[in-house]
Structure formats: structure tokens, C-alpha cells
Amino acid sequence: MLGSLLSQLRTLGTVLRHTFTRAETVEYPEQKPYLAPRYRGRIVLTRDPDGDERCVACNLCAVACPVDCIALQQGVREDGRWYPEFFRINFSRCIMCGMCEEACPTAAIQLTPDFEMCEYDRQSMVYEKEHLLIDGTGKYHDYNFYRVSGLQIFGKDKGEALDEEPPVDVKSLLP
């Protein structure tokens, strides 16, 4: 009882001592803090090194999202690639947790250090694919999902992906 009372008094003292310490506040917007490249801000969709959309519409970001603010629909392009017919993020719900980036198997969805996205109209916080898709590769420069994956697309036949042998000749009986 007395001990806990002392502890409370010590707490009061400690807090009181902070009267003489400097404030840690960075005075944004006059002062801009350094934000690391992996800071979690506005979400973008990136392109692979060949300039094609990275997103394959696998839906993993959508299911990882704790506030369910990502919706998309898959489509298949003529060259065999999967792509999102639409890709929508409701930033008025987004909590910038980065789960989508973590879930993304193709490094398509990435969070950027831009967090300044205030709007007077909430509807303007709904970003469609044309708002999200950027021209670069973002943080991961070399990854190209289709060079690793076994799916055949135009320009990459079966057996041409990373570590793949040429297709088996089914009619051969050689050992």
C-alpha cells in the first residue's frame, strides 16, 4: 500500500522532471521529417521491369486487408496474363497497415512514403486502377512474376521460366 503510494509519487516526480526536457515534435508542414522508402503511405500498383502491369488479380491483397477496402475483378488478357479488370482502393477506409503489400506475391501493390492525401469530398478518396497504377517498378526493381511462374504467356513459352526444362515430349519412351 505504502509502496504503491511511493511508486505513484515517483511517477509524479518523473513526469515533473520532463518540464525541462525538449519537445520531440517535428513541426510539420514547415519541417518535413525524413520518411524511409519503406514508409507506409499511399498505395500504388507498380509495373514489372518490362513495363507491364505487375498485378495478376490474385485477390490476396483484398483478403489480407483488415478493413476490406480493396476490391478487384480478375480478367485474362489476350496474351494469357491475368490482370485486374478493375482495381479499387477505398482510401477513406484504408489504415495503411501494409498487409496488402506483404500479401502480394508479385510485388505489384506497394506502399509509398506519400501520406498527404486529404480531400474535402470523401468520394475522392476512392482510387481506381488508373489512379493507382504508376509507370515504375517501385521498391523492387528486378522482380517479374511471369519469369518465375510456370504460366504460359505470349512471349514466354512453357519451359522458359526460371529453372524450367523444355516441355516434356509425352510421346517419348526413352528413360
Binding site: N59, A62, V63, C65, V67, D68, C69, I70, A71, L72, F86, R88, I89, N90, S92, R93, R122, Q123, M125, V126, E128
Partner: peptide
């Protein structure tokens, strides 16, 4: 229970 996108599915029509 993993149904996704509930707050974005209809957001193109209205964010509400």
C-alpha cells in the same frame, strides 16, 4: 468469414 472488399465493392457508386 474471409469475404473481402466489403468497403470497396460498391465504392465506385458511393463511398458510403
Amino acid at each position: 468469414h474471409r469475404y473481402s472488399g466489403r468497403t470497396a465493392m460498391a465504392a465506385d457508386v458511393s463511398v458510403h
